[in-house]
């Protein structure tokens, strides 16, 4: 059923073929601007509080850069797979697009699993939400990002299920496109998290 649209009957860029699709993408960009403000303020408070550790472990003591590097690699790769999905969408290869999106979902789940494992480990070492201002700002910032990943995983998985039923149309294409924009944005935020939170935290 999904192959009905494989015949090149759709316009070249189906996500921008209707005014509704165009508006959806524009609105989503403005939302991403707002998301930037949200994460910007969380970063600002983290930077102000990251050395406020009256008791409990400091970042330098608990951060494990090896695990962060693996998480970074997973998220970066998932950003690439969602771009591959969009390329398949522009070629109207629905199956290929859905496969790449499912790969993205799996990589997102792997990232989440690593992050949960990491947080559990930290809590065991005495680094909790209430242990210090560093702990509070750390879990708020990194946790907010993790929540975005969790939301993205659910969203893209639901879109894939819908895509399997409805195929690629001018109605479904903007949804896929917008979800891929969201996923890239999550990866861009992570770039700043691993640089500012983990690497600078390790540097002291």
């Amino acid at each position: 059923m999904a192959n009905v649209h494989d015949m090149g009957t759709l316009p070249a860029e189906p996500e921008k073929a209707t005014l509704e699709g165009k508006n959806k993408i524009l609105g989503f960009w403005l939302f991403l601007g707002g998301e930037m403000v949200l994460f910007g303020t969380l970063f600002a408070s983290f930077i102000a509080l990251r050395n406020s550790v009256p008791e409990g472990p400091t970042g330098d003591q608990i951060f494990k850069l090896g695990m962060v590097a693996v998480a970074t690699f997973i998220l970066l790769t998932s950003s690439l797979t969602s771009v591959m999905a969009m390329m398949a969408m522009h070629r109207q290869q629905v199956k290929k697009m859905l496969t790449w999106l499912w790969v993205t979902v799996v990589l997102g789940l792997a990232f989440l699993g690593l992050e949960i494992y990491e947080f559990v480990e930290y809590v065991h070492e005495g680094h909790t939400f209430t242990s210090s201002a560093f702990g509070t700002s750390f879990y708020t910032l990194v946790g907010f990002h993790g929540a975005h990943v969790a939301f993205g995983v659910c969203w893209i998985a639901l879109l894939c299920i819908q895509g399997m039923k409805k195929g690629l149309t001018v109605v479904t294409a903007p949804k896929f496109y917008v979800a891929s924009l969201y996923w890239h944005f999550i990866d861009v935020v992570w770039v700043f998290i691993f640089s500012v939170v983990y690497l600078l935290g390790k540097a002291g």
């Binding site: 524009l26 960009w29 991403l32 601007g33 707002g34 994460f39 910007g40 970063f43 600002a44 930077i47």
Partner: peptide, 22 residues
């Protein structure tokens, strides 16, 4: 153009908060 304006505004506020904290 509009996406760039939207992201630029977001970056402006984000960098402003960043600077204030530092």
């Amino acid at each position: 153009v509009y996406p760039i304006i939207g992201i630029a505004f977001g970056a402006f506020v984000a960098i402003g908060g960043f600077m204030a904290a530092i």
